[in-house]
Write a protein that binds this DNA or RNA. Structure first.
Ligand SMILES: [Mn+2]
Ligand SMILES: [Mn+2]
Ligand SMILES: [Mn+2]
Ligand SMILES: [Mn+2]
Lengths: 220, 220
DNA sequence: CAAAAAAGTTTGACTACTCAAACTTTAATT
DNA sequence: AATTAAAGTTTGAGTAGTCAAACTTTTTTG
C-alpha cells in the first residue's frame, strides 16, 4: 500500500499532468501544491520513479505510469465518495468537505469504500460536480464547457465547479452557483474580461473570466 | 495534534493501566500489544514522558498523565463512534469493525466526529457494548458482572463483550452472544471450569470460564 | 547572444519511527 | 543466597519525510 504522503504526491501529479498541455508535471509546481520545498519534491520524485509510479528524467518532465495513474484514480474515488457522504449525510458545508476528505481519503479500506459507495447509491459525481471514478477506474466526464466561453443570452446549467479553494466555493455557494443550477448569461464584456450571469430568483452577478473559467456548464 | 503512532501507544497504555491491579503499565506488554520490540516501546515511552503524556521512571511502571488520559478517551470516543456507524449504517460485520476503526480513528476531525455522533443519535455504547465517552471525556459504564461469576439458573442480559479479537467476536455472534441478548445459565461446573448457557431459541452453549469472563452481563 | 530568472538537483542535517542485539536491572526459583 | 528468567534499557543502524542552502541546468528576456 502506498503511504499517505505518496498518495498525496500521486494525486497532485495527476492533476498537474491533466492541466498541463504537455501532459507532464514539473517539480516547482508540485512542491508548491504540496507545500514542500523543491528539494523535497525532487527526492520524492526519485523514490516514486524507483517504485515505477512515475516516469521522470533529470531536468525534464514528470508523468505518471499506468501503476501511478491507477493509484491516482483510486485516491480520487475515495476522496469524492467521502465528500459526497459528508455533504449528503452528515450535512457538512459544501465549502469545507474538501479539506476534511483530504485526510480521510487515506484511511478508507476497499471494503468501507464500497459500502459507503453503495449506501450513497453509487453516485457518479461529488458535490462539486467532479466525476467519481468507478471501482475499476473508469471516469465518465460529462460534456461541458467553461462558463467563460458562453455568449450573451445563453441559458446553461452548471455541471461542475473546478476549484477546491474554500473561499471560492463559499463565494460560489453564496452566489447560488452550484451543480444543477440554471443560469442565464445576461451580457458578455470582452474588454472588461467579465460577464454578467443570473440564477433563478437571484440578483445578477458579475464574474471575471478567470472565475467564470472555473464554472463548467452545459447548454440547455 | 498527537501523531497516529502516539495515539495508538496512548490508547494501549490506557487499556493496560485499566486491567493492571497497580494501575500501571509495563514496557513488555505494551510492546507486545503494539507489535513492536521492547526497545522501540522504551524509546517511545521516553518521548511520551518528555511530552508530559505519561509519568515513568526507569525500570518502573508507566502511568498516563491527565493530558495523556484525555487523549486516550478522545481516541476511544472516535473509535467507538466509528464502530457504531460502520455496524448500524454501513452494515459491516460486527467482528470486522474493530480493525477498520483502528485506522479511521486517527483521521476524524472534531467537526466530523460531532456530526457523526449527532447523526447516530449520540449513542452511549458501541456495537460491542463498550461505553462511548462523551465530548467532555465522561464515561458512564453500566453496572455489570462477568458471565463467569453467574450461578446456575440465573437469568441475565448481555451488556458487553470485552474482547476485540475477530475470531472470538465471530464465535460470540455465531452463538448469539451480543449485547441486549438474554441468557439463562443452565449449569455451572467449577471442576471443568465451564458453564452452560442458553439464549432464546438457541441450542445451549458450553463456555469455559475464560470465555465467560469476557462476557459482561446484568441480572434481569 | 549574454545576463538574469526560473526550474531542478544535491548535500547535510533533522524528526519520527522502527529493529536487532548487546546489555542491565529486577523478579522469580531453586 | 545463588541462579535463572523476565523485564527494561542502550546502542547502532535503517527508512520515510522534511528543510535550508548551495549548486547546476534550462528558459526567458533585454
Ligand atoms: Mn490527502
Ligand atoms: Mn470535490
Ligand atoms: Mn489505531
Ligand atoms: Mn468496540
Amino acid at each position: 500500500m502506498a503511504t499517505e504522503t505518496v498518495e498525496n504526491y500521486i494525486k497532485a501529479l495527476y492533476a498537474l499532468c491533466r492541466e498541463s498541455p504537455s501532459g507532464e508535471a514539473g517539480v516547482a509546481r508540485l512542491a508548491q501544491e504540496l507545500g514542500v520545498t523543491k528539494g523535497t519534491a525532487t527526492s520524492m520524485i526519485k523514490r516514486l520513479s524507483l517504485a515505477r509510479l512515475v516516469k521522470a528524467e533529470p531536468y525534464s518532465g514528470i508523468a505518471l505510469t499506468a501503476k501511478g495513474n491507477k493509484i491516482a484514480l483510486d485516491v480520487m474515488r475515495r476522496h469524492r465518495v467521502i465528500e459526497t457522504f459528508l455533504v449528503r449525510i452528515l450535512k457538512l458545508d459544501w465549502a469545507d468537505v474538501h479539506e476534511e476528505a483530504e485526510r480521510l481519503e487515506h484511511a478508507l479500506s476497499p471494503r468501507i469504500l464500497d459500502r459507503l459507495d453503495h449506501f450513497l447509491g453509487r453516485p457518479s459525481t461529488d458535490p462539486h460536480g467532479d466525476p467519481i471514478p468507478d471501482a475499476a477506474g473508469n471516469v465518465s466526464e460529462a460534456r461541458s464547457k467553461p462558463l467563460a466561453k458562453c455568449r450573451a443570452r445563453e441559458r446553461v446549467c452548471i455541471v461542475r465547479i473546478k476549484d477546491q479553494n474554500r473561499a471560492f466555493l463559499k463565494f460560489a455557494a453564496d452566489s447560488g452557483f452550484m451543480p444543477g443550477v440554471n443560469l442565464v448569461v445576461q451580457s458578455v464584456s470582452p474588454q472588461a474580461a467579465s460577464l454578467i450571469v443570473r440564477a433563478a430568483r437571484r440578483k445578477p452577478v458579475t464574474l471575471s473570466q478567470i472565475a467564470a473559467a472555473k464554472i463548467l456548464v452545459k447548454v440547455i
